[in-house]
Design a protein around this nucleic acid. Sequence first.
DNA 1: CGCCATCTTGACACAATATTGACGCCTTTT
DNA 2: AAAAGGCGTCAATATTGTGTCAAGATGGCG
Lengths: 230, 230
Amino acid sequence: MSETQLRALVVDDERAIRRFLRTSLTANGYVVFEATNGGEALEAVVRDRPDVMILDLGLPDMDGTQVTARLREWSHIPIIVLSVRDQEGDKIAALDAGADDYLTKPFGVGELMARMRVVLRRVAHPEPEPVFATRDLVVDLARRLVRVRGHEVQLTPTEYDLLRVLVTHAGKVLTHQQLLRQVWGLGYEGESHLLRVNISNLRQKIERNSARPEYIITEPGVGYRLRLEI
Amino acid sequence: MSETQLRALVVDDERAIRRFLRTSLTANGYVVFEATNGGEALEAVVRDRPDVMILDLGLPDMDGTQVTARLREWSHIPIIVLSVRDQEGDKIAALDAGADDYLTKPFGVGELMARMRVVLRRVAHPEPEPVFATRDLVVDLARRLVRVRGHEVQLTPTEYDLLRVLVTHAGKVLTHQQLLRQVWGLGYEGESHLLRVNISNLRQKIERNSARPEYIITEPGVGYRLRLEI
DNA sequence: CGCCATCTTGACACAATATTGACGCCTTTT
DNA sequence: AAAAGGCGTCAATATTGTGTCAAGATGGCG
Protein backbone atom coordinates (compact mmCIF):
# COMPACT_ATOMS: atom_id res chain seq x y z
CA MET A 1 0.00 0.00 0.00
CA SER A 2 1.10 3.55 -0.60
CA GLU A 3 2.52 5.57 2.25
CA THR A 4 0.83 8.81 1.33
CA GLN A 5 -2.90 9.29 1.68
CA LEU A 6 -5.12 8.87 -1.34
CA ARG A 7 -6.97 11.95 -2.53
CA ALA A 8 -10.67 11.83 -3.34
CA LEU A 9 -12.74 14.50 -5.07
CA VAL A 10 -16.43 14.61 -4.17
CA VAL A 11 -18.70 16.32 -6.68
CA ASP A 12 -22.26 16.90 -5.51
CA ASP A 13 -24.49 19.96 -5.26
CA GLU A 14 -26.14 18.78 -2.04
CA ARG A 15 -24.34 19.95 1.05
CA ALA A 16 -25.64 17.05 3.14
CA ILE A 17 -24.27 14.43 0.78
CA ARG A 18 -20.90 16.16 0.56
CA ARG A 19 -20.75 16.18 4.35
CA PHE A 20 -21.69 12.54 4.58
CA LEU A 21 -19.12 11.49 1.98
CA ARG A 22 -16.42 13.65 3.55
CA THR A 23 -16.97 11.97 6.89
CA SER A 24 -16.96 8.45 5.49
CA LEU A 25 -13.97 9.03 3.25
CA THR A 26 -11.92 10.75 5.91
CA ALA A 27 -12.64 7.86 8.28
CA ASN A 28 -11.24 5.54 5.61
CA GLY A 29 -8.05 7.48 5.29
CA TYR A 30 -8.71 9.65 2.26
CA VAL A 31 -7.93 13.32 1.86
CA VAL A 32 -11.16 14.86 0.59
CA PHE A 33 -11.73 17.71 -1.87
CA GLU A 34 -15.10 19.05 -2.88
CA ALA A 35 -16.83 20.59 -5.87
CA THR A 36 -20.47 21.56 -6.25
CA ASN A 37 -20.87 21.61 -10.02
CA GLY A 38 -19.29 20.37 -13.23
CA GLY A 39 -17.16 23.41 -13.91
CA GLU A 40 -15.69 23.35 -10.43
CA ALA A 41 -15.11 19.62 -10.76
CA LEU A 42 -12.95 20.06 -13.85
CA GLU A 43 -10.99 22.82 -12.17
CA ALA A 44 -10.56 20.77 -9.03
CA VAL A 45 -9.11 17.84 -10.97
CA VAL A 46 -6.46 20.23 -12.29
CA ARG A 47 -5.83 21.98 -8.98
CA ASP A 48 -6.14 19.23 -6.41
CA ARG A 49 -4.86 16.27 -8.45
CA PRO A 50 -7.20 13.72 -6.88
CA ASP A 51 -6.64 9.99 -7.32
CA VAL A 52 -10.33 9.23 -7.65
CA MET A 53 -13.53 11.19 -8.26
CA ILE A 54 -16.99 10.52 -6.87
CA LEU A 55 -19.45 12.23 -9.15
CA ASP A 56 -23.16 12.85 -8.69
CA LEU A 57 -25.07 12.66 -11.96
CA GLY A 58 -27.47 15.51 -11.23
CA LEU A 59 -25.47 18.71 -11.23
CA PRO A 60 -26.81 22.24 -11.72
CA ASP A 61 -24.60 23.34 -14.62
CA MET A 62 -23.97 20.20 -16.62
CA ASP A 63 -24.86 16.56 -16.62
CA GLY A 64 -22.45 14.19 -14.85
CA THR A 65 -22.10 12.19 -18.04
CA GLN A 66 -20.97 15.35 -19.79
CA VAL A 67 -18.44 16.01 -17.06
CA THR A 68 -17.15 12.47 -17.52
CA ALA A 69 -16.82 12.88 -21.27
CA ARG A 70 -15.05 16.23 -20.93
CA LEU A 71 -12.66 14.81 -18.38
CA ARG A 72 -11.88 11.77 -20.51
CA GLU A 73 -10.56 14.05 -23.24
CA TRP A 74 -7.37 14.37 -21.25
CA SER A 75 -7.57 12.47 -17.94
CA HIS A 76 -7.72 8.82 -16.90
CA ILE A 77 -8.75 9.54 -13.29
CA PRO A 78 -11.10 6.84 -11.99
CA ILE A 79 -14.69 8.10 -11.80
CA ILE A 80 -17.42 6.53 -9.71
CA VAL A 81 -20.84 7.92 -10.59
CA LEU A 82 -23.56 8.19 -7.99
CA SER A 83 -27.19 8.69 -8.94
CA VAL A 84 -30.71 8.37 -7.65
CA ARG A 85 -31.71 7.21 -11.12
CA ASP A 86 -31.76 3.44 -11.58
CA GLN A 87 -32.60 3.57 -15.30
CA GLU A 88 -30.44 1.26 -17.38
CA GLY A 89 -30.06 3.92 -20.07
CA ASP A 90 -28.43 6.37 -17.67
CA LYS A 91 -26.00 3.75 -16.45
CA ILE A 92 -24.96 2.74 -19.94
CA ALA A 93 -24.51 6.37 -21.00
CA ALA A 94 -22.33 7.20 -17.99
CA LEU A 95 -20.22 4.03 -18.24
CA ASP A 96 -19.70 4.44 -21.97
CA ALA A 97 -18.77 8.09 -21.48
CA GLY A 98 -15.84 6.85 -19.43
CA ALA A 99 -17.08 6.29 -15.88
CA ASP A 100 -15.55 3.32 -14.08
CA ASP A 101 -18.54 2.44 -11.92
CA TYR A 102 -22.11 3.49 -11.26
CA LEU A 103 -23.83 3.26 -7.89
CA THR A 104 -27.51 3.87 -7.30
CA LYS A 105 -28.51 5.77 -4.20
CA PRO A 106 -29.04 4.71 -1.52
CA PHE A 107 -25.85 2.67 -1.24
CA GLY A 108 -23.79 1.30 1.60
CA VAL A 109 -20.58 3.09 2.54
CA GLY A 110 -18.81 -0.24 2.70
CA GLU A 111 -19.75 -1.01 -0.88
CA LEU A 112 -18.59 2.41 -2.07
CA MET A 113 -15.27 1.92 -0.32
CA ALA A 114 -14.86 -1.54 -1.84
CA ARG A 115 -15.62 -0.19 -5.32
CA MET A 116 -13.12 2.62 -4.78
CA ARG A 117 -10.50 0.05 -3.86
CA VAL A 118 -11.32 -1.78 -7.11
CA VAL A 119 -10.75 1.25 -9.33
CA LEU A 120 -7.69 2.33 -7.38
CA ARG A 121 -5.87 -0.99 -7.31
CA ARG A 122 -5.17 -0.91 -11.02
CA VAL A 123 -1.79 0.65 -11.61
CA ALA A 124 -2.05 4.37 -11.98
CA HIS A 125 -1.46 5.59 -15.50
CA PRO A 126 0.94 8.48 -15.63
CA GLU A 127 -1.53 11.35 -15.92
CA PRO A 128 -0.94 13.81 -18.70
CA GLU A 129 -0.61 17.44 -17.72
CA PRO A 130 -4.02 19.10 -17.75
CA VAL A 131 -2.43 22.19 -19.20
CA PHE A 132 -0.06 21.75 -22.08
CA ALA A 133 2.49 24.47 -22.75
CA THR A 134 5.44 24.80 -25.09
CA ARG A 135 7.19 27.99 -25.94
CA ASP A 136 4.33 30.38 -26.77
CA LEU A 137 1.51 27.89 -27.10
CA VAL A 138 -0.71 27.11 -24.13
CA VAL A 139 -3.56 24.62 -24.38
CA ASP A 140 -5.71 24.36 -21.28
CA LEU A 141 -7.38 21.02 -21.79
CA ALA A 142 -9.67 21.38 -18.80
CA ARG A 143 -11.08 24.73 -19.90
CA ARG A 144 -10.69 24.25 -23.67
CA LEU A 145 -8.70 27.44 -23.91
CA VAL A 146 -5.90 28.07 -26.36
CA ARG A 147 -3.45 30.91 -26.01
CA VAL A 148 -0.68 31.79 -28.46
CA ARG A 149 1.88 34.50 -27.79
CA GLY A 150 -0.30 35.87 -25.01
CA HIS A 151 -3.47 36.07 -27.03
CA GLU A 152 -6.44 33.82 -26.64
CA VAL A 153 -7.39 32.07 -29.86
CA GLN A 154 -10.91 31.16 -30.91
CA LEU A 155 -11.01 27.66 -32.38
CA THR A 156 -13.95 25.84 -33.94
CA PRO A 157 -14.86 22.48 -32.36
CA THR A 158 -13.10 20.52 -35.11
CA GLU A 159 -9.99 22.64 -34.91
CA TYR A 160 -9.88 22.23 -31.15
CA ASP A 161 -10.30 18.46 -31.35
CA LEU A 162 -7.51 18.25 -33.87
CA LEU A 163 -5.22 20.34 -31.70
CA ARG A 164 -6.17 18.35 -28.62
CA VAL A 165 -5.20 15.07 -30.26
CA LEU A 166 -1.89 16.54 -31.42
CA VAL A 167 -1.20 18.01 -27.99
CA THR A 168 -2.03 14.84 -26.06
CA HIS A 169 0.51 13.03 -28.24
CA ALA A 170 2.93 15.93 -28.38
CA GLY A 171 6.17 15.19 -30.14
CA LYS A 172 4.92 11.99 -31.72
CA VAL A 173 3.98 11.51 -35.32
CA LEU A 174 0.28 10.94 -35.81
CA THR A 175 -0.67 9.38 -39.10
CA HIS A 176 -3.46 10.76 -41.27
CA GLN A 177 -5.45 7.69 -40.36
CA GLN A 178 -4.99 8.12 -36.63
CA LEU A 179 -5.97 11.76 -36.75
CA LEU A 180 -9.00 11.16 -38.94
CA ARG A 181 -10.15 8.34 -36.70
CA GLN A 182 -9.68 10.28 -33.47
CA VAL A 183 -11.22 13.54 -34.67
CA TRP A 184 -13.84 12.48 -37.21
CA GLY A 185 -14.42 8.91 -36.05
CA LEU A 186 -14.39 5.59 -37.81
CA GLY A 187 -15.16 5.58 -41.50
CA TYR A 188 -13.30 8.79 -42.32
CA GLU A 189 -9.89 7.15 -42.78
CA GLY A 190 -9.68 8.08 -46.43
CA GLU A 191 -10.85 11.70 -46.27
CA SER A 192 -7.41 13.25 -46.00
CA HIS A 193 -8.53 16.54 -47.58
CA LEU A 194 -10.56 17.19 -44.41
CA LEU A 195 -7.33 16.95 -42.51
CA ARG A 196 -5.47 19.22 -44.90
CA VAL A 197 -8.08 21.96 -44.76
CA ASN A 198 -8.36 21.85 -40.99
CA ILE A 199 -4.61 21.73 -40.44
CA SER A 200 -4.38 24.76 -42.69
CA ASN A 201 -7.06 26.63 -40.75
CA LEU A 202 -5.45 25.71 -37.45
CA ARG A 203 -2.10 26.96 -38.65
CA GLN A 204 -3.59 30.28 -39.76
CA LYS A 205 -4.77 30.71 -36.19
CA ILE A 206 -1.79 29.55 -34.17
CA GLU A 207 1.29 29.84 -36.35
CA ARG A 208 3.17 33.09 -36.82
CA ASN A 209 3.73 32.21 -40.47
CA SER A 210 1.80 29.20 -41.68
CA ALA A 211 4.27 28.62 -44.49
CA ARG A 212 6.95 27.96 -41.86
CA PRO A 213 5.05 26.24 -39.07
CA GLU A 214 6.72 26.18 -35.65
CA TYR A 215 4.18 23.95 -33.92
CA ILE A 216 2.28 21.76 -36.36
CA ILE A 217 4.89 19.97 -38.42
CA THR A 218 4.09 17.99 -41.55
CA GLU A 219 5.63 14.56 -41.85
CA PRO A 220 5.28 14.11 -45.59
CA GLY A 221 3.52 10.99 -46.68
CA VAL A 222 2.75 10.08 -43.09
CA GLY A 223 0.96 12.64 -40.99
CA TYR A 224 1.58 15.49 -38.58
CA ARG A 225 3.11 16.06 -35.20
CA LEU A 226 3.30 18.81 -32.64
CA ARG A 227 6.87 19.95 -32.28
CA LEU A 228 8.27 20.14 -28.76
CA GLU A 229 11.88 21.19 -29.32
CA ILE A 230 12.87 24.69 -30.29
CA MET B 1 -11.50 -1.35 -32.78
CA SER B 2 -10.06 -4.82 -32.43
CA GLU B 3 -10.34 -7.05 -35.45
CA THR B 4 -10.59 -10.29 -33.54
CA GLN B 5 -13.61 -11.19 -31.46
CA LEU B 6 -13.41 -10.88 -27.71
CA ARG B 7 -13.72 -14.08 -25.71
CA ALA B 8 -16.03 -14.33 -22.72
CA LEU B 9 -16.20 -17.14 -20.17
CA VAL B 10 -19.58 -17.69 -18.52
CA VAL B 11 -19.51 -19.52 -15.20
CA ASP B 12 -22.91 -20.55 -13.84
CA ASP B 13 -24.44 -23.83 -12.72
CA GLU B 14 -27.88 -23.01 -14.07
CA ARG B 15 -28.36 -24.10 -17.64
CA ALA B 16 -31.01 -21.44 -18.32
CA ILE B 17 -28.72 -18.59 -17.27
CA ARG B 18 -25.82 -19.92 -19.33
CA ARG B 19 -28.12 -20.11 -22.35
CA PHE B 20 -29.39 -16.58 -21.77
CA LEU B 21 -25.88 -15.15 -21.39
CA ARG B 22 -24.58 -17.08 -24.38
CA THR B 23 -27.33 -15.59 -26.55
CA SER B 24 -26.80 -12.04 -25.33
CA LEU B 25 -23.02 -12.19 -25.56
CA THR B 26 -22.99 -13.79 -28.99
CA ALA B 27 -25.37 -11.12 -30.24
CA ASN B 28 -22.87 -8.55 -28.98
CA GLY B 29 -20.01 -10.10 -30.89
CA TYR B 30 -18.32 -12.19 -28.19
CA VAL B 31 -17.10 -15.73 -28.53
CA VAL B 32 -18.57 -17.57 -25.53
CA PHE B 33 -17.12 -20.35 -23.41
CA GLU B 34 -18.90 -22.01 -20.52
CA ALA B 35 -18.13 -23.59 -17.19
CA THR B 36 -20.57 -24.96 -14.61
CA ASN B 37 -18.47 -24.87 -11.45
CA GLY B 38 -15.37 -23.34 -9.97
CA GLY B 39 -12.96 -26.09 -10.90
CA GLU B 40 -14.06 -26.02 -14.51
CA ALA B 41 -13.82 -22.23 -14.49
CA LEU B 42 -10.16 -22.28 -13.50
CA GLU B 43 -9.41 -24.89 -16.15
CA ALA B 44 -11.32 -22.94 -18.77
CA VAL B 45 -9.33 -19.77 -18.09
CA VAL B 46 -6.17 -21.72 -18.88
CA ARG B 47 -7.58 -23.61 -21.85
CA ASP B 48 -9.80 -21.03 -23.56
CA ARG B 49 -7.84 -17.85 -22.73
CA PRO B 50 -10.92 -15.65 -22.31
CA ASP B 51 -10.63 -11.85 -22.20
CA VAL B 52 -13.32 -11.50 -19.55
CA MET B 53 -15.14 -13.77 -17.10
CA ILE B 54 -18.74 -13.57 -15.93
CA LEU B 55 -18.98 -15.44 -12.68
CA ASP B 56 -22.01 -16.47 -10.69
CA LEU B 57 -21.45 -16.37 -6.93
CA GLY B 58 -23.44 -19.49 -6.11
CA LEU B 59 -21.55 -22.46 -7.48
CA PRO B 60 -21.86 -26.10 -6.34
CA ASP B 61 -18.21 -26.81 -5.57
CA MET B 62 -16.80 -23.54 -4.34
CA ASP B 63 -17.91 -20.02 -3.68
CA GLY B 64 -17.46 -17.45 -6.47
CA THR B 65 -15.37 -15.31 -4.15
CA GLN B 66 -13.04 -18.26 -3.66
CA VAL B 67 -12.79 -18.75 -7.41
CA THR B 68 -11.90 -15.07 -7.74
CA ALA B 69 -9.23 -15.30 -5.08
CA ARG B 70 -7.71 -18.45 -6.57
CA LEU B 71 -7.68 -16.86 -10.01
CA ARG B 72 -6.05 -13.68 -8.77
CA GLU B 73 -3.05 -15.67 -7.62
CA TRP B 74 -1.89 -15.81 -11.21
CA SER B 75 -4.34 -14.03 -13.52
CA HIS B 76 -5.48 -10.46 -14.08
CA ILE B 77 -8.47 -11.39 -16.23
CA PRO B 78 -11.40 -9.02 -15.61
CA ILE B 79 -14.11 -10.68 -13.52
CA ILE B 80 -17.70 -9.52 -13.32
CA VAL B 81 -19.59 -11.24 -10.53
CA LEU B 82 -23.30 -11.93 -10.79
CA SER B 83 -25.42 -12.77 -7.78
CA VAL B 84 -28.95 -12.92 -6.48
CA ARG B 85 -27.64 -11.74 -3.12
CA ASP B 86 -27.81 -7.99 -2.59
CA GLN B 87 -26.08 -8.09 0.79
CA GLU B 88 -23.35 -5.49 1.11
CA GLY B 89 -21.04 -7.97 2.82
CA ASP B 90 -21.07 -10.32 -0.17
CA LYS B 91 -20.28 -7.50 -2.54
CA ILE B 92 -17.39 -6.23 -0.49
CA ALA B 93 -15.96 -9.73 -0.12
CA ALA B 94 -16.12 -10.42 -3.86
CA LEU B 95 -14.71 -7.05 -4.86
CA ASP B 96 -11.90 -7.26 -2.34
CA ALA B 97 -11.10 -10.79 -3.47
CA GLY B 98 -10.30 -9.30 -6.85
CA ALA B 99 -13.56 -9.02 -8.79
CA ASP B 100 -13.84 -5.97 -11.02
CA ASP B 101 -17.59 -5.51 -10.72
CA TYR B 102 -20.63 -6.99 -9.02
CA LEU B 103 -24.11 -7.09 -10.49
CA THR B 104 -27.22 -8.12 -8.62
CA LYS B 105 -29.76 -10.24 -10.45
CA PRO B 106 -31.97 -9.35 -12.12
CA PHE B 107 -29.94 -6.98 -14.29
CA GLY B 108 -30.34 -5.53 -17.77
CA VAL B 109 -28.29 -7.00 -20.57
CA GLY B 110 -27.41 -3.48 -21.71
CA GLU B 111 -25.92 -2.69 -18.31
CA LEU B 112 -23.91 -5.92 -18.27
CA MET B 113 -22.54 -5.13 -21.74
CA ALA B 114 -21.63 -1.57 -20.68
CA ARG B 115 -19.84 -2.85 -17.57
CA MET B 116 -17.98 -5.38 -19.67
CA ARG B 117 -16.84 -2.56 -21.95
CA VAL B 118 -15.59 -0.72 -18.86
CA VAL B 119 -13.42 -3.57 -17.61
CA LEU B 120 -12.22 -4.43 -21.10
CA ARG B 121 -11.19 -0.94 -22.10
CA ARG B 122 -8.58 -0.78 -19.40
CA VAL B 123 -7.09 -4.13 -20.30
CA ALA B 124 -6.98 -3.14 -23.95
CA HIS B 125 -4.92 -0.04 -23.23
CA PRO B 126 -1.42 -1.09 -22.17
CA GLU B 127 0.14 -2.04 -25.48
CA PRO B 128 3.83 -2.86 -25.48
CA GLU B 129 5.55 -0.60 -27.96
CA PRO B 130 7.88 -2.25 -30.38
CA VAL B 131 11.05 -0.21 -30.28
CA PHE B 132 14.20 -1.38 -31.97
CA ALA B 133 17.49 -0.06 -30.67
CA THR B 134 21.06 -0.92 -31.45
CA ARG B 135 24.07 1.20 -30.59
CA ASP B 136 23.06 4.69 -31.76
CA LEU B 137 20.08 3.80 -33.91
CA VAL B 138 16.59 3.84 -32.43
CA VAL B 139 13.56 2.93 -34.50
CA ASP B 140 10.23 3.40 -32.75
CA LEU B 141 7.90 1.37 -34.91
CA ALA B 142 4.78 2.39 -32.99
CA ARG B 143 5.40 6.10 -33.32
CA ARG B 144 7.25 5.93 -36.63
CA LEU B 145 10.23 7.81 -35.27
CA VAL B 146 13.87 7.26 -36.11
CA ARG B 147 16.71 8.63 -34.04
CA VAL B 148 20.43 8.36 -34.80
CA ARG B 149 23.13 9.57 -32.42
CA GLY B 150 20.52 11.51 -30.47
CA HIS B 151 19.05 13.30 -33.47
CA GLU B 152 15.70 12.63 -34.97
CA VAL B 153 15.87 11.80 -38.66
CA GLN B 154 13.28 12.64 -41.29
CA LEU B 155 12.68 9.73 -43.61
CA THR B 156 10.46 9.60 -46.67
CA PRO B 157 7.77 6.91 -46.63
CA THR B 158 9.79 4.61 -48.88
CA GLU B 159 12.96 5.07 -46.88
CA TYR B 160 11.10 4.35 -43.67
CA ASP B 161 9.46 1.24 -45.09
CA LEU B 162 12.82 -0.04 -46.21
CA LEU B 163 14.35 0.57 -42.80
CA ARG B 164 11.37 -1.01 -41.10
CA VAL B 165 11.79 -4.22 -43.07
CA LEU B 166 15.51 -4.31 -42.31
CA VAL B 167 14.92 -3.63 -38.63
CA THR B 168 12.19 -6.25 -38.21
CA HIS B 169 14.62 -8.82 -39.58
CA ALA B 170 17.65 -7.29 -37.90
CA GLY B 171 20.85 -9.27 -38.32
CA LYS B 172 19.48 -11.41 -41.12
CA VAL B 173 20.33 -11.01 -44.76
CA LEU B 174 17.40 -9.89 -46.86
CA THR B 175 17.69 -10.58 -50.55
CA HIS B 176 16.99 -7.94 -53.16
CA GLN B 177 13.86 -9.85 -54.07
CA GLN B 178 12.58 -9.97 -50.50
CA LEU B 179 13.17 -6.27 -49.97
CA LEU B 180 11.59 -5.26 -53.25
CA ARG B 181 8.57 -7.43 -52.57
CA GLN B 182 8.06 -6.18 -49.04
CA VAL B 183 8.56 -2.48 -49.76
CA TRP B 184 7.31 -2.04 -53.32
CA GLY B 185 5.01 -5.03 -53.55
CA LEU B 186 4.72 -7.84 -55.99
CA GLY B 187 5.88 -7.19 -59.52
CA TYR B 188 8.94 -5.15 -58.60
CA GLU B 189 11.28 -8.11 -58.09
CA GLY B 190 13.55 -7.08 -60.94
CA GLU B 191 13.84 -3.35 -60.22
CA SER B 192 16.99 -3.55 -58.15
CA HIS B 193 18.05 0.00 -59.06
CA LEU B 194 15.14 1.24 -56.92
CA LEU B 195 16.71 -0.58 -54.05
CA ARG B 196 20.17 0.84 -54.74
CA VAL B 197 18.96 4.42 -54.88
CA ASN B 198 16.90 4.13 -51.73
CA ILE B 199 19.55 2.30 -49.77
CA SER B 200 21.89 5.09 -50.75
CA ASN B 201 19.49 7.81 -49.61
CA LEU B 202 18.86 5.96 -46.37
CA ARG B 203 22.57 5.68 -45.69
CA GLN B 204 23.06 9.40 -46.29
CA LYS B 205 20.57 10.00 -43.53
CA ILE B 206 21.57 7.45 -40.91
CA GLU B 207 25.18 6.51 -41.48
CA ARG B 208 28.04 8.60 -40.22
CA ASN B 209 29.96 7.90 -43.45
CA SER B 210 27.91 6.21 -46.13
CA ALA B 211 31.05 4.85 -47.78
CA ARG B 212 31.70 2.81 -44.61
CA PRO B 213 28.22 1.88 -43.42
CA GLU B 214 27.86 0.77 -39.80
CA TYR B 215 24.22 -0.23 -39.94
CA ILE B 216 23.12 -1.11 -43.45
CA ILE B 217 25.58 -3.67 -44.72
CA THR B 218 25.76 -4.79 -48.33
CA GLU B 219 25.97 -8.51 -48.94
CA PRO B 220 27.35 -8.47 -52.47
CA GLY B 221 25.32 -10.41 -54.96
CA VAL B 222 22.70 -11.23 -52.35
CA GLY B 223 21.12 -8.30 -50.60
CA TYR B 224 21.42 -6.21 -47.44
CA ARG B 225 21.26 -6.69 -43.72
CA LEU B 226 21.10 -4.55 -40.65
CA ARG B 227 24.16 -5.14 -38.53
CA LEU B 228 23.59 -5.87 -34.85
CA GLU B 229 27.13 -6.48 -33.56
CA ILE B 230 29.59 -3.69 -32.92
C1' DC C 1 -37.87 31.44 -42.09
C1' DG C 2 -33.40 33.35 -42.54
C1' DC C 3 -29.11 34.24 -40.32
C1' DC C 4 -24.74 32.84 -38.68
C1' DA C 5 -20.83 29.90 -37.92
C1' DT C 6 -18.96 25.83 -39.26
C1' DC C 7 -18.08 21.97 -42.15
C1' DT C 8 -17.33 19.94 -46.59
C1' DT C 9 -16.02 19.89 -51.29
C1' DG C 10 -13.56 21.07 -55.53
C1' DA C 11 -9.95 23.57 -57.96
C1' DC C 12 -5.46 24.83 -58.39
C1' DA C 13 -0.53 26.12 -57.33
C1' DC C 14 3.32 24.44 -55.31
C1' DA C 15 6.36 21.19 -52.68
C1' DA C 16 8.12 16.70 -51.73
C1' DT C 17 9.04 12.28 -53.22
C1' DA C 18 9.59 8.48 -56.59
C1' DT C 19 11.56 6.89 -60.61
C1' DT C 20 14.67 6.86 -64.32
C1' DG C 21 19.04 7.25 -66.72
C1' DA C 22 23.89 8.32 -66.78
C1' DC C 23 28.25 7.53 -65.03
C1' DG C 24 32.19 6.09 -62.23
C1' DC C 25 34.06 2.94 -58.83
C1' DC C 26 35.14 -1.46 -57.05
C1' DT C 27 35.52 -6.45 -57.16
C1' DT C 28 35.75 -10.61 -59.47
C1' DT C 29 36.86 -13.30 -63.43
C1' DT C 30 39.55 -14.78 -67.25
C1' DA D 1 45.64 -6.35 -67.08
C1' DA D 2 41.27 -5.87 -69.19
C1' DA D 3 36.50 -6.77 -69.16
C1' DA D 4 32.18 -7.49 -66.96
C1' DG D 5 28.94 -7.05 -63.68
C1' DG D 6 27.31 -5.33 -59.37
C1' DC D 7 27.03 -1.27 -56.67
C1' DG D 8 26.70 3.75 -55.19
C1' DT D 9 25.85 8.46 -56.34
C1' DC D 10 24.05 12.33 -58.79
C1' DA D 11 20.84 14.86 -61.37
C1' DA D 12 16.57 15.12 -64.44
C1' DT D 13 11.98 14.27 -64.94
C1' DA D 14 7.53 12.20 -63.55
C1' DT D 15 4.42 11.46 -60.09
C1' DT D 16 2.21 12.13 -56.01
C1' DG D 17 1.19 14.73 -51.83
C1' DT D 18 0.19 19.11 -49.53
C1' DG D 19 -1.55 23.97 -48.66
C1' DT D 20 -4.75 27.44 -49.74
C1' DC D 21 -8.78 29.70 -51.40
C1' DA D 22 -13.46 30.08 -52.11
C1' DA D 23 -17.95 28.33 -53.19
C1' DG D 24 -21.65 25.35 -51.68
C1' DA D 25 -23.82 22.46 -47.94
C1' DT D 26 -25.20 21.79 -43.36
C1' DG D 27 -27.01 22.68 -38.97
C1' DG D 28 -28.14 25.37 -34.84
C1' DC D 29 -30.78 29.26 -33.18
C1' DG D 30 -33.61 33.20 -32.72
